[in-house]
Nucleic acid binder design. Structure first.
Lengths: 250, 250
DNA sequence: TCAAAAGTGTTTGAATTACACCCATGT
DNA sequence: ACATGGGTGTAATTCAAACACTTTTGA
């Protein structure tokens, strides 16, 4: 296909996803045989990290981009997102929601026109995220970056990241989505740490407890944290089963 | 292209729009030479109406569908929406916002796979909307229906309408978008009528006034309504210029 | 016994609701 | 005058923030 033919061809559909994970993973077990909880080694603030993929072909060859790719003929939008996440991150996300669709003409001036449907996803602790920018496991072309200091991104992916961060913060402020950053069970203190990391401000523990429990989505497991050098916290789990797709709830 | 070839072809991109207008148009001028305001002739409740287009080809030939169509190679998503609205409704919308993208496989089992990007739009008074289902002006294949009693719709368009109604109600409850149903200037009573029609419940006039003015988006024009058999209401206009595109603000 | 986070209680002020009441106009 | 919606006032209620204080654990 020549350049001029491509330019008149109908737009292709691609799906890109903004993935968020925390580092260090809030409330993660540090694997020792006693199974003790170990909090942040020190006062390191919990920060948001995002995996990016290095482009291996023009346009924007060599620069970083969101994980994603074209939709297959027999795939739903969300299946495309999941397939690409499995390839780039290596596991299924804890949460996945459609964000927005971008169809600007400038997105890909020289190559074929592409309409991108953006998703955003949350992961709980992921080992590659812990190792920072120099990730090593599966793919040499995937690396994790702090959301505060992203490199220059291909296409309009910087805008997409900004919008996804906005959505993450907004939804964190009125719902309990952020529990998807954590494991199966978690303490309210851990959940509060996540909220503080996402919102970038401290949250009153007493009021947080009341607000979040008033929503009625958390269930007390009856268990408590063990091995803490202070009063052990109750462990909670989310009420409903782990739904994947979820429409934006504006 | 044969059927089996189509089935493996990459998905096409289409834009469909859920258009809302009110009937009778709240606070419309009824054209007489004195330019007097005339309220609803009687107690008829204000209701939401939606224009639909009759399909002239398979699949779903003969059934009603949302106005829309495929994206052109040099068109942005919103331009596609505007072009289709101009064709189906005959004028530009007062508000237009992206809703959600639908890419289910079942959407078009026999024909080419289509990914639909849905928008929603608000129109102020439109003459065809007033004439009800038997619209007559431009296009014989366009008709307006009450949102309460839509016919069977093609594809998954019924789901799209439901979701758009949800979004309209949600956004009406925390913002002043609904003023786009009205003309350039309007009274708070008219805006309140619109909110009551959209939300389906009565709204306290005193509290509504305070809430809506506290948002600071409405400007008192200094003018007042004329010709009412009761105390004339102040006329307001919206502060900012008429922005079209606006991202979903969840 | 001490430090530290878990968890409860209480006070204050802001925001929302409900509703009483006056105002301005055409009939 | 009077009916009608426009517009203001105000008390009651609910909601959110701030912060004091008690509890429970390991060291």
């Amino acid at each position: 296909m020549s350049a001029s033919e491509r330019r008149q061809a109908p737009p292709a559909v691609a799906v890109s996803t903004v993935v968020f994970a925390l580092h260090p993973p809030a409330g993660a077990f540090v694997g020792d045989d006693t199974g003790e909880f170990v909090e942040d080694p020190d006062g390191d603030a919990v920060t948001i990290w995002i995996p990016l993929v290095r482009r291996t072909r023009p346009p924007f060859e060599g620069t970083w981009a969101l994980p994603g790719g074209p939709i297959e003929w027999n795939e739903t939008l969300i299946d495309t997102a999941l397939r690409n996440l499995l390839a780039a991150v290596g596991q299924e996300p804890g949460y996945l929601e459609q964000l927005y669709s971008f169809g600007g003409l400038e997105r890909s001036a020289e190559a074929q026109r592409v309409v991108t449907i953006a998703y955003w996803a949350l992961y709980s602790a992921h080992e590659d995220a812990e190792s920072g920018a120099q990730a090593g496991s599966s793919d040499q072309n995937v690396a994790w970056f702090s959301a505060d200091s992203l490199p220059r991104l291909a296409f309009d992916h910087a805008d997409i990241v900004d919008y996804a961060l906005q959505r993450l913060r907004l939804k964190t402020s009125y719902s309990t989505v952020a529990y998807r950053f954590l494991g199966e069970v978690f303490t309210l203190g851990q959940l509060r740490q996540v909220h503080e990391a996402v919102l970038g401000q401290r949250v009153d523990p007493a009021n947080f407890r009341r607000q979040v429990l008033a929503q009625g989505h958390l269930v007390d497991t009856g268990e408590t944290q063990k091995g803490t050098p202070f009063r052990p916290a109750r462990l909670y789990r989310f009420r409903a089963g782990p739904d994947h797709e979820q429409r934006s709830t504006p």
